[in-house]
Simulated scan of single mutants.
Amino acid sequence: MAAKRTTTRRTTKTPAPAPADCESCGGTGTVSSTVRVGRKRRTVGRQDGFCLDCFGTGTAASA
C-alpha cells in the first residue's frame, strides 16, 4: 500500500465575480412594450415579453 499523506494543501480561491445584469431588462429577463389599439392608436396597456438580449436569463451576454 502507498503511504498516506499527512499534510494537506491549503489553497485560497477567490470567488468568481457575479455576472453583470442585462442592460435592456435590468436583470429581470422580461421587457415590456406598449400596446396600442384603434384608428387613433390609443394606448391601452403594456405587455411583458421575453428579453432577446439575454434570452431571459437576466445576465449580460459575453461578447
Rank of each mutant, 00 (worst) to 15 (best):
A60V: 01
V37C: 06
D53W: 00
A60N: 04
A18K: 10
P15H: 07
P17V: 02
A60D: 02
T11V: 11
R41S: 10
S24M: 12
G27H: 03
K4L: 07
G49E: 09
G26W: 00
R41C: 07
T6Y: 05
A60M: 11
M1Y: 06
T12W: 02
G29T: 07
C22K: 00
R36P: 03
T6W: 06
Q47H: 12
A16S: 13
A60G: 06
G49A: 15
T30I: 04
T11R: 10
P15E: 10
C51V: 11
A3G: 05
M1S: 10
T43K: 15
A20M: 04
C25E: 02
G27E: 01
T59Y: 14
T8P: 02
S33G: 09
R36K: 15
R39Y: 10
T28K: 09
R46S: 15
V31Q: 03
R41N: 09
K13D: 03
G27T: 01
T34Y: 02
G58R: 02
A18H: 04
C22H: 00
P15F: 03
A61R: 12
T28S: 14
C51I: 04
G38H: 14
T43Y: 09
F50E: 14
T34N: 06
G29E: 05
F55C: 10
T28R: 10
S32R: 13
S32M: 07
G29D: 06
C54F: 01
T7M: 04
T43A: 12
A20P: 00
G45Y: 11
T14V: 06
R42D: 05
D48T: 15
R10M: 03
C54T: 06
A63E: 15
C51P: 10
C22T: 01
A16F: 02
P15Y: 08
G49M: 01
T8D: 07
R5H: 01
D53L: 13
D53C: 09
R10T: 10
R46I: 06
E23G: 05
T34Q: 08
T30M: 08
C25N: 05
F55A: 14
G49K: 12
K40H: 13
A3N: 08
T8E: 06
F55E: 13
S32E: 14
R41Y: 09
T6D: 08
R39Q: 08
A2G: 09
G56R: 03
M1L: 05
G38E: 13
T12L: 14
G26V: 07
G38R: 15
G27C: 02
P17S: 08
C51N: 13
F50S: 14
L52N: 14
G58C: 06
V31E: 02
R46A: 11
C25Y: 00
E23M: 04
V44Q: 04
A2K: 06
G38K: 13
K4Y: 03
S33N: 12
T59V: 11
T34M: 07
T7I: 07
T11I: 11
S62N: 12
G49I: 00
S32F: 08
A60W: 00
T11K: 06
D21F: 01
T7C: 05
A2R: 04
